[in-house]
Simulated scan of single mutants.
Amino acid sequence: MKYCRFFLIFLLLALTAGCGADWFPEYHQSPTDPNVFSFDTQTNVALGSVVKSNTITVQGLKAASTTITISDTTGSGSQYSINGGAFTSANGTVKNGDTVTVQHTASSTVGGVVVTTVTIGNIAETFTSIVSNVQPLFSPITKQAAAGKDVDSGLVTLNITPGSYVVSITNGLFSTNATTGFTAISQSITFSSPAVIYLRNTAPSTVGQSVVTTLTVGNQTGTMTTTAQ
């Protein structure tokens, strides 16, 4: 009886093979699909900056051309450029040898991520930018003053998202008011939009020497340098 079972199994395998069954079907690329492409993730980008991707070249199409579309879920103005032309978000077409570059506006939040999806034919790939967790609070401030004189920065607009932050300072004072409340005591402050602050330091007593005041808000810093003259 067992020989009958072996015979039946052998016969079944032989018949299956004879029918040309394909156990591992070969992948057939659609004529309108390009070879796989990729966009490099960009990290430590500036808040709200326009970020451009690396440029890819369309290859592997069997058809004369294929479609290209772009999208994102963050309203970040994602666009693409073909062969260095004008950036657009409209649906278009590309062919073998065309180059494609993507751009979008980075997140306005420290550490924020923006993801753009580019679809060529049926092949979809993403371009991602990540805002740095450490951004400069403001451009460096430089002042000159008579030796020993107190110096105010004037209004300083901070490069942060409005919210509550721990504020500290070295070699100077800060305030959220232009004329009063200056302090060197670290404290939590809630900033609205725009986020602003005022700094104060004292010029050194020796002409030519400088004092550097460093303000820290959250994990971001900015400096004010005053030189005695």
Score class of each variant (00 low, 15 high):
209 Q>Y: 09
35 N>F: 13
145 A>P: 00
165 Y>H: 01
84 G>C: 01
20 G>R: 13
195 A>Y: 05
58 V>T: 06
136 P>K: 00
189 I>V: 14
8 L>Q: 11
61 L>H: 01
40 D>Q: 15
177 N>Y: 08
104 H>G: 03
17 A>N: 13
198 Y>W: 14
89 S>Y: 05
219 N>G: 11
174 F>I: 04
65 S>P: 07
165 Y>I: 00
80 Y>K: 10
43 T>C: 06
70 I>W: 04
32 T>N: 12
149 K>G: 04
139 S>T: 05
36 V>A: 15
78 S>C: 08
221 T>E: 07
142 T>V: 11
202 T>D: 01
164 S>T: 11
40 D>V: 12
60 G>Y: 11
144 Q>D: 08
104 H>W: 01
157 T>G: 01
92 G>D: 03
26 E>N: 13
118 V>P: 04
7 F>I: 12
215 L>Q: 15
64 A>P: 07
128 T>S: 02
35 N>Y: 14
178 A>K: 15
13 L>I: 14
92 G>T: 04
106 A>D: 03
227 T>I: 07
2 K>D: 13
120 I>C: 00
188 S>E: 11
108 S>H: 14
38 S>I: 09
210 S>I: 02
25 P>L: 06
39 F>K: 03
7 F>A: 15
166 V>Y: 11
87 F>G: 05
3 Y>T: 10
147 A>S: 02
119 T>F: 02
213 T>W: 08
1 M>N: 09
83 N>I: 09
102 V>C: 02
96 N>G: 09
107 S>E: 07
71 S>M: 13
88 T>M: 10
60 G>N: 13
110 V>S: 06
156 V>Q: 10
109 T>L: 08
74 T>W: 08
66 T>M: 08
10 F>G: 15
107 S>F: 06
153 S>G: 04
57 T>K: 13
48 G>H: 08
187 Q>K: 04
3 Y>L: 04
5 R>V: 15
9 I>W: 14
34 P>Q: 02
19 C>R: 15
144 Q>R: 07
35 N>G: 15
189 I>K: 07
151 V>R: 04
70 I>D: 07
64 A>I: 10
95 K>R: 14
122 N>I: 02
172 G>T: 15
19 C>P: 08
185 I>H: 10
112 G>R: 01
11 L>E: 09
165 Y>N: 00
